[in-house]
Amino acid sequence: MERRYVQCDRDKCTGCMICQFICSAGKEGNFNLEKSRISVVQTGPSTVTAIACQFCRNHPCIKACPRDALSADAATHTLKLDKARCAGCGWCIEACPFGAMTLDDSTKSVTACDLCTNHAQPRCIEVCPRNALSLYISRRGR
């Protein structure tokens, strides 16, 4: 399956979190950095990078889910969540090697990057002031 995700050039990333602001504004209607689908993480004393769902080939999150709430959506190249099934147990968060899944405390369900399918391109890529973010597309092993 084609793999798409938002990737970050850590040499360009300044840690300004504008991607997080715009993501939470678009998805949640307010500025809540915790609920952003992309997050800026410090990876070293002076290195920061932004991480979003990498849509891994082996889908550790889907495998980890005990209630089969997660599945891969081939059409949009994103994770699909069945909210009715998700109980917010957090197994997918544990399984994610990138820390890209977040738990929404208020609805007790998880969220991950959906690549802003209703926009021309993910909004974080659009607003990044240093052009550190880009959309990675890999067709290997299709």
Partner: peptide
């Protein structure tokens, strides 16, 4: 070493 920015800052004036 690194150019960094404060949250929500597009300028990033801080060079380490």
């Amino acid at each position: 070493v690194k150019v960094s920015a404060c949250p929500s800052c597009p300028i990033a004036c801080r060079g380490l």
